[in-house]
Design a protein around this nucleic acid. Sequence first.
DNA 1: TAAAATATTAGACCGATCGTCTATAAAAAT
DNA 2: ATTTTTATAGACGATCGGTCTAATATTTTA
Lengths: 210, 210
Amino acid sequence: MRSATPLKRRRGRPPKDQAGFSQTKAELIRSGMEVLTEKGYSATGIDEILRRVGVPKGSFYHYFKNKDAFGSELISNYAKFFEHKLDRSLGNRSLPALQRLSLFMQDAIDGMARHQFKRGCLVGNLGQEMGALPESFRRQLIEVFETWQQRLEACLEEAKAAGDISADTDCKQSAYLFWTGWEGAVLRAKLERTPNALQSYADFFINSLK
Amino acid sequence: MRSATPLKRRRGRPPKDQAGFSQTKAELIRSGMEVLTEKGYSATGIDEILRRVGVPKGSFYHYFKNKDAFGSELISNYAKFFEHKLDRSLGNRSLPALQRLSLFMQDAIDGMARHQFKRGCLVGNLGQEMGALPESFRRQLIEVFETWQQRLEACLEEAKAAGDISADTDCKQSAYLFWTGWEGAVLRAKLERTPNALQSYADFFINSLK
DNA sequence: TAAAATATTAGACCGATCGTCTATAAAAAT
DNA sequence: ATTTTTATAGACGATCGGTCTAATATTTTA
């Protein structure tokens, strides 16, 4: 489980080659993402995130004001990453719209499988924990959902125009529903450690559009 | 927020009127349920649960071996509570099967509204946290889902027999899907603090059966 | 090239939390 | 009446999370 990088890191101001890019910061974000999608925010200690990449505590508080600020950056980071993913998949005009959605879902299933279904969705994880999270996270998370919804809505509109889904589909509403249910499926896949919930939901949703 | 019950509790062995029933233990479970459905397991400390009901630590560890045992009892308790609820709603033969499901959902929505959508579902909450929870919780949670699924499956079979839903519906599969998506909707309702996700999902699911 | 400024690492520190343990109290059993 | 059982009371130590100050190495500037 442990990555255990006991390498002594260089102290002092680093050589100025990398333009505004910090390797250490990137490592912290990656490490944080891994742990948070598995265990959630509250259950995760900074120490664990640091240990994984062999970074001392001082560095963490150099790059982030505190744990909350770190969490907030994780959300932004995840959102951006996911947005690009959606643009490449749902927005890929060289494929039929509905097929793009199917591919996206299969891709996500494969992704979860690669981590033995131990890692979920950051947005879902934090959403569930809202009661223990800083209030500022709420808006951020809601906005992320809205972004995803817009991407899917556009895709569904294309499917409708192509006559692949029922002409009276409310694409906005369908897109909203999709993400709601999808999060449920991710949660359950994580609980059961199988792709079953995701696969079922994928088929179900596609079918509901026709 | 605080209930602040600074009442000095009776010390010593209690009068033997109540047959095997402990008021204090019940209070701890209720208190724990409230906090855990809001903040989750990891984010909640024993002290907070105790403070709410004015019970000292000694009592907690008198009734429960440790936090994990407490959590496990919470799950059992929640499962039993919910099972009865489902029996009364989904199993109420004096109503059309589909209508029972609608009523159950509306009831749940009202319930969440009463707590300003701050409390979610214990099973969903813990499921999401699995990465940080004792492995024994997993089986327990999966089994709870299965129980719920069976209740709904039976209800759907009745609806099918009555001709209210498509004759080729796979009731078991539909029931599985329902709970998967429902948890997603609960999560989102909690995030957005509105009944919107639940309402949408309710309509969507009922519609998908026809 | 020496001093000042800056960027980063290092880890001490404090408070909170978990679980244990001992003391106390009151009722029941003998 | 004495002992046993059931339960509350809360102090205590170990551990851990988050913050903060000191130390160190590099750049910048003069």
